[in-house]
């Protein structure tokens, strides 16, 4: 029993790493473009489908396929900014309208996937070994994902804090008009952010591909998970998202092992609802007046 729990906790932590990436992307986009990207999980899904297409249908080996997918998912982010977000910003849509528009995108992406790739599960068959340390069994794919995620987070942190562009992005998030007065072009920053967010979905897709099979509704539970994390950690707080990811990763993993996968999700959803009710700014977020 203890071993089972231990395994669940460890795997939860490993999962938490990639969830932290997901939360980071959402927080970045929310902080800079000020939009709740409801269809983020679906973007990851599309990334996974692209990788599958490259590997299974075009015979490209896994790693080049992943690398090839990154600019494509980045371009998707840019396209979203251009076609959906810019019009929303121009029309000065209220947050609810933005939410609904992005929810509409969920329907578009899921059905796009269904039309192009069909409703069945599609997987990249890459056999990776199971490593064990005593009573703990770890999949190599999960380990790679975990360390890869940490590495990515570190790079993103360095980018945001040590480069001029990163500084410009952080400034735009804090006061967009003031950023303008510094010579920063907010439009360019939005595109950059959405491109970065897009590339991030490609990276996450790369880590997920050896672990999960993809289907048109795959994005759904991950988007929900990502939102739960972002709200728990506090919208806009990178550190909060990081911590939240591990909490949710562990809680879902343990609950799923003890009861069922659905219960795991239900527990996460209940946490989400409670946070919204009781402490909407989450653990580390900024207090938002409603």
């Amino acid at each position: 029993m203890v071993e089972l729990l231990l395994n669940a906790v460890i795997n939860g932590i490993l999962l938490g790493g990639v969830l932290a990436l997901l939360a980071f992307g959402l927080n970045l986009i929310f902080g800079v473009v000020k939009i709740i990207h409801l269809a983020y999980g679906q973007c990851v899904m599309l990334g996974m489908y692209l990788i599958y297409t490259f590997v299974d249908l075009l015979g490209i080996p896994l790693i080049p396929a992943c690398l090839l997918t990154l600019p494509l998912t980045g371009a998707l982010g840019v396209a979203l900014q251009w076609l959906v977000i810019n019009p929303l910003l121009r029309a000065k849509a209220n947050p609810l309208t933005q939410l609904l528009a992005l929810a509409g995108l969920i329907i578009v992406f899921e059905n796009l996937a269904q039309v192009i790739w069909g409703a069945d599960l599609r997987g990249v068959k890459v056999p990776l070994p199971l490593i064990n340390f005593g009573p703990i069994f770890l999949r190599a794919s999960n380990l790679i994902a975990f360390f890869g995620a940490l590495l990515t987070l570190l790079s993103l942190y360095l980018f945001l804090h040590k480069t001029y562009l990163g500084l410009a992005i952080r400034s735009t998030a804090q006061n967009v008009d003031s950023a303008r007065l510094m010579g920063i072009n907010p439009g360019l920053i939005y595109y950059t952010t959405m491109a970065a967010g897009g590339i991030l979905t490609g990276i996450i897709a790369a880590f997920f591909s050896p672990i999960y099979a993809v289907h048109p509704h795959f994005g759904g539970s991950f988007t929900m998970m990502a939102f739960i994390i972002v709200v728990l950690g506090g919208m806009g707080s990178m550190l909060g998202g990081f911590i939240g990811a591990f909490i949710i990763g562990i809680v879902t993993s343990v609950t799923a092992v003890l009861t069922s996968t659905e219960m795991g999700e239900i527990v996460a959803l209940v946490i989400f609802i409670s946070v919204i009710l009781v402490r909407p700014q989450g653990l580390l977020g900024i207090k938002i007046s409603r």
Partner: peptide
């Protein structure tokens, strides 16, 4: 209109963006 969560140095740095 300072950037509230940036340091003094970072605020100055943005000035020379």
């Amino acid at each position: 209109w300072l950037f509230p969560q940036l340091t003094v140095l970072e605020n100055l740095k943005v000035g020379s963006y």
